[in-house]
């Protein structure tokens, strides 16, 4: 388990990251979300040790993290970085060899990952000659090349089309199913689909952290009621609920004293009903609530 404990980073008069604590559990995808400038990248760089924290610490499996531990991690920095004028296979195997792979193992590992993305034909092309999407695939391959013990990925999906995202997620699930994975993104619907856990950062502080389900259950429960032709405005007079919105025969309401079963029974008693459904609150709404 990778854990950040009270990480703080000050740049001049700006506190970019302020007392940030959270953990990334193995075998779970942890989404790291926050507006631009919330401190995601700074936090990730401190986790990886390429930036020293002003205060606070990082632990790995309960003990203070060391350089050797970090070397086992896979890292995808925010500013993508590979050798532009190096051949793909050569480049990936170089990174593998920096992690102690033998020359032969490094090359076969590089080919394996290139093969996953269908880039085996281009193994001898220069990185520069690839499309941006393909460069991004090579970048994630570089992060996975040494079978990392944890993954820290800064915006790994930005700029990818949905199919490419699916391929990358599949690769992550295959290659890093049982290690802690932290990835930042501001594509909330993507985070919602992929994440088990969530850390929400705002203004350098953690405003919410936990499993996606927990965060959802903490927030208020809403229901949508659709009547068959009838105007739904009467629901406003119903005791124990708060109506947020009415549009013709559809109402959006929050339970405020009665149970869901009571609501359903009451509505059905009044006339024909098409739907009484719990509204799964989209992540974007949780996000807006906690960062407000």
């Amino acid at each position: 388990m990778l854990e950040a404990i009270s990480l703080t980073r000050v740049f001049g008069s700006l506190t970019a990251v302020d007392d940030v604590s959270f953990h990334v559990r193995p075998g779970r995808m942890t989404g790291f979300v926050g507006a631009n400038g919330a401190g995601k990248t700074t936090t990730m760089r401190m986790l990886m040790g390429v930036l020293a924290p002003t205060s606070g610490s990082v632990t790995w499996n309960g003990s203070p993290i060391g350089a050797e531990d970090r070397r086992g991690f896979g890292y995808m920095p925010e500013e993508r970085g590979l050798y532009p004028r190096m051949k793909l296979a050569e480049q990936l195997s170089y990174f593998a060899r920096l992690h102690g792979f033998s020359r032969r193992d490094a090359l076969s590992r590089a080919d394996e990952l290139l093969g996953f993305f269908g880039l085996e034909e281009r193994r001898d092309d220069l990185l520069d000659n690839l499309s941006l999407g393909n460069q991004q695939r090579v970048q994630i391959a570089a992060a996975l090349i040494h079978r990392p013990t944890a993954l820290v990925l800064d915006e790994p999906f930005s700029g990818l089309d949905p199919l490419a995202v699916d391929a990358m997620v599949e690769l992550l699930q295959r290659e890093a199913a049982d290690v802690p994975v932290l990835f930042s993104s501001h594509q909330l619907e993507l985070v919602e689909r992929l994440c088990d856990d969530l850390v929400i950062l705002s203004g350098g502080r953690v405003v919410a952290a936990g499993s996606v389900d927990e965060l959802r259950s903490e927030s208020v429960e809403r229901y949508r009621v659709v009547l068959d032709g009838q105007d739904a405005a009467w629901l406003r007079d119903l005791r124990g609920v708060r109506v947020d919105d009415v549009d013709g025969s559809t109402a959006l309401l929050t339970l405020d004293g009665i149970e869901a079963a009571d609501l359903t029974r009451t509505v059905v008693e009044r006339g024909p009903v098409l739907e009484v459904a719990r509204v799964r609150q989209p992540l974007s709404e949780i996000f807006r609530e906690v960062t407000r």
């Binding site: 390429v50 970090r70 070397r71 890292y75 920095p77 500013e79 970085g81 050798y83 990174f95 920096l98």
Partner: peptide, 13 residues
């Protein structure tokens, strides 16, 4: 310039 140094620095001393 190519930022590959971040990956390098995370991989080797």
């Amino acid at each position: 310039e190519s930022r590959v140094v971040e990956i390098l620095a995370a991989s080797v001393p």
